[in-house]
Design a protein around this nucleic acid. Sequence first.
DNA 1: TTGGACCGAATCGGATCCAACTTTTGCGGT
DNA 2: ACCGCAAAAGTTGGATCCGATTCGGTCCAA
Lengths: 261, 261
Amino acid sequence: MTAAEAPRRRPLSDPGLVDDLAEQIHASIRSGDYPIGTWLRQEALATAFGVSRTPVREALRKLQADRIVEVFPHRGALVRGPTAVDLRETYQIRAELEGLAAELAAARITDEQLRTLREAEAALRAAMDELRAFVATRGTGAVRSGPWDVADLAFRDALLDACGVERLQRMAGELRDAFPRNLVWSTLAEEPSLLDESIAQRERVRAAIERHDPVAARRWMTDHLRRTGTLVAEAFERRQAVEDAPDPRDIRARLGRPTPG
Amino acid sequence: MTAAEAPRRRPLSDPGLVDDLAEQIHASIRSGDYPIGTWLRQEALATAFGVSRTPVREALRKLQADRIVEVFPHRGALVRGPTAVDLRETYQIRAELEGLAAELAAARITDEQLRTLREAEAALRAAMDELRAFVATRGTGAVRSGPWDVADLAFRDALLDACGVERLQRMAGELRDAFPRNLVWSTLAEEPSLLDESIAQRERVRAAIERHDPVAARRWMTDHLRRTGTLVAEAFERRQAVEDAPDPRDIRARLGRPTPG
DNA sequence: TTGGACCGAATCGGATCCAACTTTTGCGGT
DNA sequence: ACCGCAAAAGTTGGATCCGATTCGGTCCAA
């Protein structure tokens, strides 16, 4: 409306608006803007992204199919969070898929891709130092997205890219994005030695790929992910245990009640 | 409206209408009612299922996320079919996932589940004979759904169920439904010995699980799926080559045209 | 005080409307 | 006969409308 508003927003035709929308909402969930367990209100999303509810609903259906949100009829869409078993299962499967990717990459990787992989590893080392510094000052709780995340993603993408199996790239990527990534970093950063271990594991993978040793590449990659999965799941269980403890609010409520005057 | 037409279709809210719709459309695609490469018209689907276009569009978005259809902005939704590389990749990944499933099943399977697995294997043997008979009379081209399909599904489900990892079950199931299943049977049935081989492979898997040998179970399962994948992909490539040959209709057209009188 | 029925606000779900885009059809020129 | 172009038909995409459902709060009775 608002009269004389001729220069309609560019239709942005290429990818299709709904696909964009789904990706943006997904990104907002990953970044933590819409925390786990919150309701996604269609009207709120619509106004936030400047569209009507119709494309929002279609986008939510896509996210439902990808298990990012859970849709309850006549209630709304809930941001799904992983359970401890979810984490274990996901890492177990990722270990298989990315293990296969490493095996294939060891056989097929080009020099160009290998260079990218090495650069990503170097960036990862630097990022680990940054993460250590970050945690030293602000603690593990405040860990969000950062260079560590970017570098980790670059390393995996380089490897998946080198394996040359498109469906494998997509499936592994979806598993990686199945839950907020800061879980991993806040877990590993709790114990600085784990960061070194994680780097060392990846180094072994890179070395195996470098010398075109498929068997070793797969072996080290699966080991790496199984180990990480165990650590993350255990840390998650500890956190859950704390959160499931008697709710402080109950105590406050009960204390605040007796004889108000 | 049509007056006095009160008994509105039961909302049957439980699963949500759109989810039902998506499943029905998916089933129609799997069964071949909407062949690969055809356009899904929203209006046609809407009238076919007695709803408006809005829920249809949401259902199509779910199918898009599951890679069942491909959505082109302002053009429509196309039923996706596999390419030869799609088939190879899918089986390669299934070999990993179901290999893991077999390994886990070997360790965890219960006696009850083992019994189900044995029954499924027996049913599979019987179904193979039926398939042989079917092909002998009607040829491999007419192979559609049948006891072979049901028995195969039961065997896999029994195994996946025994592995106890829900996400693994779901992902392997989605891969299995990624393209029409008759491809497999029409391929194997071309050479009767392949059916025996397929059965023998599964028998090895079952035997390994029976004696709780995780390593062997995985090994035989991955071997089985890699072998099947190679066979199916090669058969698919042969079929594609035939279809890409000069279209007979062109010849007819050119012959039928000159001097109609 | 407690439990349950009722009512209203908020939200979702499906249908319908209209604009935008794509494809096809039909016409005129070469 | 062929090519190009313009109008028309058909389809999708987004917005809006309204009925349906859920949830929270209030009132009344036990």
